[in-house]
Design a protein around this nucleic acid. Structure first.
Lengths: 219, 219
DNA sequence: ACAGTTGCGTTAACGGTGTTAACATAACGT
DNA sequence: ACGTTATGTTAACACCGTTAACGCAACTGT
């Protein structure tokens, strides 16, 4: 049939077949992992963290519950992977907001808006990332957080603000933590109680960030 | 035996016995409720919200799991009652802090300190009250919150601050929400991740409240 | 081409959860 | 003394995450 292939040594063709077969199986494995992750993400968003069930993910995927253990160590590992992807997305969102302005003030204001907007858009995910299982993503120690992408975007903008002298008596790390606490508090309210409609939460975010920035300047 | 009692009509003595019996049974019922509540509180504090188990409460109380349903509608009702008592305590703590100073600024600073201190002292309870099940206690709507004791202590101090003109362009409700968001964000961090030792959290609380108060003044 | 190994998915089972239903028993009111 | 009510029990249901044992297909080395 294939004259070129026929001229090659049989051993090499067998090797090619073997390699491609392994690659195909690996691809299938990755694809199944991917669909399971997408199902898990969908159910997490739909049902919330507290009702998230490994068995239900398996059912929707068309497998027995125990089959998923071939691909994920346990329920937490599955959730952690979903989490880590959203953490990357969250970092990107903050970075994009940061780039939407040039002056430190504007950069911080935009970041705050984007931060709370993320919580509004993905409440179940924000809850998992920052409220229920903070170890999935940013970790529990101050060093973990200091190495987080999102935190550093914020910290750098605060550093830039400090360079203009508008940071008062606080050091950069403290000022960063203070600002983070503020938006985190609002985000936590967004995902746990719906006191206000989303747009009012954004207005509140504006009020909070202007207040804090003004306070840093005159503190 | 007892000549006085013998002279009374038998019917009346029977009534007295009946009433006291009912009272005694009611007291026993209340006492059992109370011990169950104390056990539940202890286990909530010890194991945290996510591991809280009705069956384990029943076991420690010396009853079968289903027995508790005579005294509480379900697991959530039991937790809600534990919650409501802590809410009362939380309100008292804030009020006491409020009274520790006379000027609006000092009142708000003291309240912020007491707020975060409460989260440090009772992390599992704060999580239940404000993060996991906010409907147990302060509710989910803005009207529920507006009728909460703790919130009103804060709101009144903000009102007093506004009377001195140090509140800038924000209305009292918005300013209250902004301040609450800030301390809530810190408290949420206290109970979900332990980035810092408690005393540093309190220092951060001071930094946060001075910043926000300065921001309100110059905003 | 055949034998052995590896990977995948299954069922069965364990210990745990909240909750409902049916039942026993003791105390109470008439 | 009898019927009723309150209190607590056991059994059972429907879930949950997780482990162990097994069947089976595909792949690998000889």
């Amino acid at each position: 049939m294939d004259s070129d292939a026929a001229e090659l040594p049989a051993a090499k063709r067998a090797d090619r077949v073997r390699a491609r077969s392994a690659a195909r199986r690996e691809a299938e494995r990755l694809q199944l992992r991917e669909t399971v992750l997408r199902i898990a993400e969908r159910q997490l968003v739909a049902h919330g963290y507290e009702r998230f069930s490994l068995r239900e993910v398996a059912e929707e995927a068309g497998y027995s519950p125990t089959a998923l253990y071939r691909y994920f160590a346990d329920r937490d590992a599955l959730l952690a992977e979903v989490c880590s992807r959203y953490f990357a997305q969250f970092g990107d969102v903050l970075q994009a907001a940061d780039r939407s302005a040039t002056d430190p003030r504007g950069r911080l204001m935009a970041q705050a808006q984007a931060y709370v907007q993320f919580a509004i858009d993905h409440p179940a995910v924000y809850r998992l990332m920052f409220l229920e299982r903070p170890e999935m993503g940013m970790g529990l120690t101050i060093d973990d957080v200091a190495s987080d992408a999102g935190f550093n975007v914020l910290a750098e903008a605060v550093g830039a603000l400090a360079a203009t002298g508008e940071i008062g008596s606080l050091d950069v790390l403290s000022a960063t933590m203070v600002l983070w606490s503020g938006v985190h508090g609002l985000a936590a309210m967004v995902v746990t109680m719906n006191l206000l409609p989303p747009d009012q939460y954004l207005a509140m975010t504006r009020a909070l960030s202007t207040t804090m920035l003004a306070g840093l300047q005159h503190g």
